[in-house]
Design a protein around this nucleic acid. Structure first.
Lengths: 120, 120
DNA sequence: TAAGGTAGTTACAAAAAAGAAACTAATTAA
DNA sequence: TTAATTAGTTTCTTTTTTGTAACTACCTTA
């Protein structure tokens, strides 16, 4: 009869806020968007399209709106023609950057260790 | 004419290993699986099913295999009847734990700041 | 007068992820 | 001999995510 090792976990039940955090930055584009905002301070809509050429307008709008709704980025609209909209990290968004940096480091190290056996 | 702020980003092009890291832990179950392994050392297949009751057998196998293939967890099979299979974090997987911890902390703080306005 | 730049929206289609339910094999215990 | 336990597999369906392509409005420049 196996010992029960499922005693204590450091979050309520077995779930935790990792899932929330992960959800906010998951998907094909959100992390790239946040990361670029972390490095550029302010990025406009079409600047994003130049920085991330593969993203479609639809996905870009969708992801930006979602990030805004979640309070990770700010959207500042200048009421002028031609339109000008500036995106930037919110305070909460800025607090995410150390995590993204760690993920970047971990990923680089992982690729170094595994590039012999796996392809990306 | 707007200034071009898209000069330097701290990874090749605009993409970076964040995407790789994120891919490895994304999905509905992987982070929970890793987090629990970080807290329990060893977990058997059916133990996982008790810890995470909502997961189906199919998803559990699928995610465990994927994590194993990516080198984040170890799968140790004891050739006996009834079968016994022990899952644990690999060295690379262990290195992920500080990131998950930070994500947990960030998420908790985020929920504190935003629970007034948003529901989860 | 037509093209180009701004920041989008809309409808539809394809692909990927997740879930439901039934099935497997070997052994032991009742 | 029937049920329970282990660790899964398989097929099919639903849901979610992502992509394609065309369209909008307003103004400036050629």
């Amino acid at each position: 009869m196996p010992k029960d090792r499922t005693n204590k976990v450091s979050c309520s039940n077995y779930r935790c806020e990792i899932e929330i955090t992960l959800e906010l930055i998951s998907g094909k584009w959100k992390a790239i968007i946040l990361w670029n905002l972390g490095n550029h301070e302010i990025i406009r809509f079409n600047e994003f399209r130049r920085i991330i050429p593969e993203i479609t307008q639809k996905m870009l709008t969708q992801q930006l709106r979602s990030l805004e709704e979640d309070g990770l980025i700010n959207r500042k609209v200048y009421n002028q023609i031609p339109p000008m909209v500036e995106y930037s990290l919110s305070e909460e968004g800025k607090k995410l950057m150390p995590i993204l940096e760690q993920m970047d480091k971990w990923g680089k190290n992982y690729v170094d260790n595994y590039k012999k056996t796996k392809q990306y």
